[in-house]
Design a binder for these strands. Structure first.
Lengths: 195, 195
DNA sequence: GGATACATGTAATGAGTTACATGATTCC
DNA sequence: GGAATCATGTAACTCATTACATGTATCC
């Protein structure tokens, strides 16, 4: 139901829009928060219209349908935000890779972390720009909270990558050309506590 | 394939384990990084064994199977980490809720953000403890990088929530009992740029 | 003997991705 | 007229959750 809430939110905040335009939001402004492809968006919009949460307000040029949120849709969004328990399940592939780093030779590990560092450095810049744009007088701050969160989270990830590179040792030590695992290798077998 | 990599990583780093024990990792140490239920873990382990990435090393008491990673499994983990492009897709329900906050009346918005604040405050504490435990002499630092990342990210989220509460205004203003939207309401209709 | 934790599986359903498929408008 | 973009949809597949189903060992 998160996708549904996201669509309702976009329609409430930015006014009527087509499935195409909504999909574009997921690949642009909303991409640091939630994502969805058009193949997921169109059927969901159809279901929401069937449920009376949105209406086809206008049919435009290339078969375009402009959807507008109904009163029931507004209520559903409010209900979802206030009454449904947030799903805080984490499934973060970058963090997973971080978890797995110690299984790699040190040099390889450093390279990987450096890649993340560059990536989050860039993302932070992008999000900072976005946030500053949203803080402008007219934009009414929609997306501002999320952009600020994005800036803070990507800063944290960038700084973590800085820290990790340092931890892993950034200089080539004298014991050249035989990397060896970053921290552990096959380790601790025979931990049987039960049988 | 992220689940597969996570399982291989656990087996490489902590040695042979049962599906049950691996599943427990996803609800404990790994829960801030990746999650999976037993109904997903068991079939995946079976597929991995069929593919020769792991072996049933021992069959224990209650039908328990202890899996050990093979050389092919180690290689697959290395390959996944170094050759596969990380999936950086974000699908963060908390951030989505942040995005949607401005559609709510101010008072309700503040309550919601306060809940997040408490939650991330707690999570940060937990992760800090976990990280400090992992930094101990014996643990060889496995999970340390991920725990550090978790601490940094949840700190960022907690601090964002602090900031957001302040932005939304924490004091009851004199215009009591008629909340009104936090920032915008139905807003800006008729943005048609195309037709 | 009963509760709890250990231990493994399957089935139905929902969420999300990739690929297939089609056509209209606009810009050059 | 050709390319790019607008615009919507469906089908097959993978990934993930919830619920169903079963049985064993251990602790009290």
């Amino acid at each position: 139901m998160a996708l549904r809430a996201a669509l309702l939110g976009l329609l409430v905040a930015r006014g009527p829009a087509s499935g195409y335009a909504l999909t574009k939001s997921f690949s642009e402004s909303l991409s640091h928060v939630w994502s969805a492809r058009h193949s997921q968006v169109y059927p969901e919009l159809a279901r929401m219209a069937a449920a009376g949460l949105i209406d086809v307000e206008e049919e435009g040029p290339r078969g375009r349908k402009r959807y507008a949120v109904t009163e029931a849709g507004r209520e559903e969004l409010r209900r979802w935000l206030t009454e449904e328990e947030p799903n805080r399940t984490v499934r973060n592939e970058v963090a997973l890779r971080a978890f797995l780093i110690p299984t790699l030779p040190r040099r390889t590990a450093v390279d990987l972390v450096r890649t993340e560092l560059d990536f989050y450095s860039k993302r932070r810049q992008e999000l900072t720009q976005l946030r500053d744009a949203l803080a402008g007088p007219d934009e009414q701050g929609f997306g501002y909270y999320a952009a600020e969160l994005g800036v803070r989270v990507s800063s944290a990830m960038k700084e973590w990558a800085d820290w990790a590179v340092e931890q892993l040792g950034t200089e080539d030590p004298p014991d050249d050309e035989d990397p060896g695992p970053a921290a552990l290798a096959r380790s601790t077998d025979g931990e049987g506590r039960d049988s």
